[in-house]
Design a protein around this nucleic acid. Structure first.
Lengths: 340, 340
DNA sequence: GAGAGCTACTAAACCGCTTTAGTCACCAGC
DNA sequence: GCTGGTGACTAAAGCGGTTTAGTAGCTCTC
């Protein structure tokens, strides 16, 4: 049967025109008669022609693919609710435009640099997504240096020259704290993400600001690492305090759920003895006991926005930063009136 | 500064040889003197030369990339502990070999077909991973038809002609059931995954077989969908039964944890009134209350194995099926002696 | 000391597409 | 009737590698 995939030359021969004409016709460019164009298109369809990605990318020096490098420890990669959803959103805009996503998963930040270097150096991708932004992120200057277009998820703390998807965690945290304050809590602790991560730091700052706004002294903070084990350890630390908090605001759901389990173990009842809020609203959060009050975010939407902006950028237009909807508080059963 | 990326011709000119010689040297082929080879390699490094992916793939008609198409609903994609870890394993072997992973996330099975068709048709990838195998999976014949090499995760129920990564869920489920039987349970229910999925069906069959082996009548089964909401609904159904089970074997952890929450809500104490086992051992499972007894699997290892086999296949050798380690039971606190 | 057989290398074709520079027929205008 | 312009199309030159065919220079052999 089909010995070999048909090339543009085959289409040209069958349609009785030159390859140039076929190329023009297929790309919808002027210079081909209406009738001829139709004949070419029909022939291409009949032959089952599909463009060769390699050839096209060689001649246009574009690869029609975008890259994402993720630094994640193998053991914790499975429970990150963010990145699969983000990728889903990215794909939702890439696929219809015939673009692909090249994913690289690496164990640490160092390998991440190498990853971007390779992706750019080999011209495997036309641009990259920059997630998990760190303070003074070294990847920004790297990408500028190798001239690889990028879009950052979150606005970097230094001038980057790249468009940013601006996500503001502050309103989400603020409403969570406000909710707790409204329930009468005054000792509100925080289990933070790593401070070198911009979103870890941002949520922490938002918590501080919200307490300040409420006229409360900043409660105890434990810096953790966004993992379940880390959340559990942080919770043990907080519950061991002499003046233990009556509410804990966690920087993500995973730590919050793990913290809730620790509270149960210690004999505290959530929310009677301790109120707990999370961040992300992962699928399971509505299905633990008690269901978790948390801040719902929209990583899928972020992915869509990021992909749109990056695509615009590599296609030559000059997109500005884009704001995306901040998280909203979902009140469930893990928060209640302050005890006593 | 660096106006343009150096090409192989630049390297040739600087080293004072022909492009052919450079190509030979860079690819470690014979026909170049030792001294010349060294000079070429040094020059390439100095100039910061990196191969152009498009050019190479055009002339070799290989794309140095493997593809994975995932059909996942946007709302549940974030809580799947399998695929991120699987991808991590895949990357662990791809990256060192200079290969890339092209990921496509689509909403449903229909779009999945189109995804593979595009990946293959455009020659964007040299081979693909086939996960979430379904009964009489139509993708198998599609891939055979378009001549795209593949490796299947799990052994398909029909002849496929592709190497398979054979993962056997039976020992895991069998030990879980055995563990419950040993604790005196006789009414052991199952919350299954969708039967059209091979692993959903496989775990169900393993449960049936294990009960049979123990001389017990098959308990009630509810077919669910691997989601938290589905697990919760299934649990409500089981707990509403006249002869309610004293133990439930869930086909994955997500449903198990959600089921545990339902049990709590209804006032049952786990494990005193109801024992619960999961499958996967996701990160959170060790950090819920009570900690979940479950079957630990190794999706990272599966990813590594699948990548190795697929790479061998596209590079021309003829790898056979590969067995990977079955899951092992991790006993925690969600299982205990049968009540009464 | 001429032909055979190596080794080390060069020249050029080729992969399949895009794109520029032409070519050709036809019509308008003076 | 000749020039100039325009629309439709062709020829051919890239893009940056790989690979085949070929060639020069050398040693070995009888």
């Amino acid at each position: 049967m089909s010995n070999r995939r048909p090339t543009i030359a085959d289409v040209a021969a069958y349609a009785g025109v030159s390859v140039g004409a076929v190329s023009f016709a297929l790309n919808g460019r002027p210079g081909v008669g209406e009738e001829t164009r139709k004949r070419i298109l029909d022939t291409a369809r009949e032959l089952g022609w599909q463009p060769s990605h390699g050839a096209r990318s060689l001649s246009t020096s574009r690869s029609f693919a975008l890259g994402l490098v993720l630094a994640r420890a193998p053991e914790s990669i499975g429970s990150d609710p963010f990145f699969p959803a983000f990728i889903g959103g990215v794909e939702a805009v890439l696929a219809p435009r015939g673009q692909s996503l090249v994913l690289q998963v690496v164990p640490d930040a160092e390998a991440e640099i190498a990853g971007y270097r390779r992706l750019g150096g080999e011209s495997r991708v036309d641009g990259v997504f920059l997630t998990d932004l760190r303070c003074s992120d070294p990847r920004l200057s790297l990408l500028t240096e190798i001239g690889l277009p990028a879009v950052t998820l979150n606005r970097p703390d230094i001038e980057s020259g790249f468009p940013a998807i601006c996500l503001d965690d502050r309103p989400g945290i603020a409403t969570a704290v406000g909710h707790l304050v409204g329930l009468g809590h005054t000792r509100i602790a925080h289990v933070a993400g790593p401070t070198e991560l911009l979103h870890g730091r941002g949520r922490h700052e938002a918590w501080t600001a919200a307490l300040d706004e409420a006229g409360l002294a900043p409660g105890p903070v434990v810096e953790s690492d966004f993992t379940a084990a880390g959340g559990a350890a942080a919770t043990r630390e907080l519950l061991g305090l002499a003046e233990r908090p009556t509410a804990i605001v966690y920087a993500n759901d995973l730590m919050a759920v793990a913290g809730m389990a620790v509270a149960h173990e210690r004999g505290y009842v959530v929310p009677d003895d301790l109120s707990i809020t999370g961040f992300d609203d992962m699928e399971l959060s509505a299905h633990v006991h008690p269901a978790l009050t948390t801040v719902r975010t929209d990583p899928f939407g972020w992915g869509r926005a990021a992909a749109r902006v990056l695509l615009d950028l590599v296609e030559g237009s000059d997109p500005g930063d884009e704001d995306v909807t901040p998280g909203t508080l979902v009140i469930r059963r893990s928060t209640g009136s302050a005890p006593g």
